[in-house]
């Protein structure tokens, strides 16, 4: 009986640890999305729109999930350094420059990207600020 009790307590502890781990990650995701939304409104929405719809041929929409997936490791560079090359989004070419946002810290870049890549029909999950630092090193290739 005693053995049974101990093992069940042990099992319960393990499950709760796993469960809390999962919810921690989920919480991080929710936190990043919440902070990222504010940054998006302040810095991105002018051109890319409330629903990520873009603006004519001046600013591309952020709703092309395939583009987002294929260019995920370059997104941090786009935000921090701006874009000065044509990009093909939803099969259309966009040639306007995007301004750089050097004032954003790595964690802010991570937050705004988590918001964008999990909104407007995208579902890329979590993106940590460590990954932002790593991706930024590879910018000038």
């Amino acid at each position: 009986m005693r053995k049974y009790l101990i093992s069940s307590v042990f099992l319960l502890a393990i499950t709760s640890i796993i469960y809390s781990c999962q919810s921690q990650e989920k919480m991080d995701l929710q936190n990043y999305i919440a902070s990222g939304r504010d940054i998006y409104i302040a810095k991105c929405q002018n051109c890319h729109g409330e629903k990520g719809e873009g603006l004519g041929e001046l600013a591309p929409p952020l709703t092309d999930s395939l583009f987002i997936k294929a260019n995920k490791s370059r997104l941090a560079c786009f935000v921090k350094n701006g874009v000065n090359e044509p990009l093909v989004v939803h099969g259309k070419e966009y040639k306007e420059k995007m301004p750089a946002f050097p004032e954003l810290t790595n964690i802010e870049v991570a937050q705004v990207l988590v918001f964008i890549t999990n909104s407007f029909g995208n579902k890329e999950g979590f993106y940590s600020y460590d990954q932002v630092s790593a991706d930024l090193i590879d910018c000038r290739k």
Binding site: Q45, N46, C47, G49, L55, L58, A59, P99
Partner: peptide, 10 residues
């Protein structure tokens, strides 16, 4: 202009 103009014209 990257600040208010795109919103204005949208």
């Amino acid at each position: 202009c990257t600040t208010i103009c795109p919103t204005m014209h949208r």
